[in-house]
Design a protein around this nucleic acid. Sequence first.
RNA 1: GCGGGCGUAGCUCAGUUGGUUAGAGCGCCAGGUUGUGAUCCUGGAAGUCGCGGGUUCGAUUCCCGUCGCUCGCCCCA
Length: 425
Amino acid sequence: MSSGSSFSPPRGMRDFYPEEMAAQNVILRTWRSVSESFGFEEYDACIVENLDLLKRKSGEDIVKQIYAFEDKSGRELALRPEMTPTLARMIAARQGALAMPLKWYTIAQCFRYERMTRGRRREHYQWNMDIVGEPSVSAEAEVITAVCAALSRLGLSPTDFVVRINDRALVAAVLASLGVDAAYHATMFLVLDKRDKTDDLAALLDNANLPPDAVQAVDQLAALRSLDDVARLIGEDAAPIQSLRELIKLLELSGLTKSVAFDMSVVRGLDYYTGIVFEGNDAKADMRAIFGGGRYDNLLKAVGGKPASGVGLGFGDVVIHDLLADKNLLPGAAPVLDVAIGYMGIEQRSIATGIASTMRAAGSSVDLGLHPEKAKQFFSRVGNGRARQAIFLGPDDLAAGEYRIKNLEDRTEKVVPFSALSPSD
RNA sequence: GCGGGCGUAGCUCAGUUGGUUAGAGCGCCAGGUUGUGAUCCUGGAAGUCGCGGGUUCGAUUCCCGUCGCUCGCCCCA
């Protein structure tokens, strides 16, 4: 490590060595296969985005949180911090031509310039699923069902995680019924989001600068633990109550009862969410959210398109990686080869190459030795879980017209004549 | 932006109350009659003790700075 610092990637950026790639691919492949099996279409976009688009969605302050720069012509650009503005732009550009509702997904590398903590780097891959143009809660149900399927395929059981669901419209209705002025609703969302994460609630309320009745409302809100509690306050007929009940019913039909819960403290930080919001967490460990999402009604309009309602989900690779690693659910090494082939002298290289070629054509993964080596070296190189079977060729094999293929797990050998090979077809 | 912890071999870490050539385990390389993985035996390579400055006869050790890593806070995905 003498001069090792210059070999490190830039702060917060990540390298993936082959043995880490195996674990990374488990996550990315699961995202992809779940998306496909739920009928989402894949899209992709440029990593560099117009800074203006990001500002339009999130305001000027966002600039200090992202990797922003000028190109050589003075264009203001940025490495995308998230995918949603880009998605909105792409949809707005073809809004007339696209058949709604659409279901799109992507796995996007995103960048954010900020301080790092556990579960957060300056660069990550984020799985996005969006359903745009569908106003009913079927959209929320579909996205949440899909994300639960992904967690399940990654090896988590239904009680390992919890999806907490809320509706911003519901919170707004409750606040209104408690007499909190609409002007303070946004601040109240923030306070709600924080109240379980801080140990100094008093200071938080102080800083929030809320009127006394709003401060009182925070406690009253905390007392509302179930949807029934809320329904008693604002009435069973209230639209947010109805839609949340319907969503929960749909999720129950998909067998997700154990993983889903109403929780009024979930509001999500992003201000473009307007309706139902949800967040997935590990059921035990105190980690940051595994994923989050919700309904946005104004996003398309905000980037200059026609209004359309959408539901989106963002799911980063870092937290889930740490979580799965803690539970020993990720592979620690590169994938295992079907066959490794080695040879003692350069004279055996041709036949070794022929065997490799035939086996590869038949669909096996084969590692062919790049140079002659000693038997001991060969077997210790490939025998440590790197390959399932091994073929080692020496002069005797050539003379006998056969080779031995060895099962590296039980150490048994099988003799195969060269004539069994048919390299030409 | 604020605060805590840590930088010694490829990895995990000892250690030096400041004193000759800096240690272990694991890993790696070579050998143990030129055709077989584990174990075993023998040997070996490998460190400007993160970097720079200060104090000192002498610094890896003490002090200051700096860079890097890490964990929180702020904020957020």
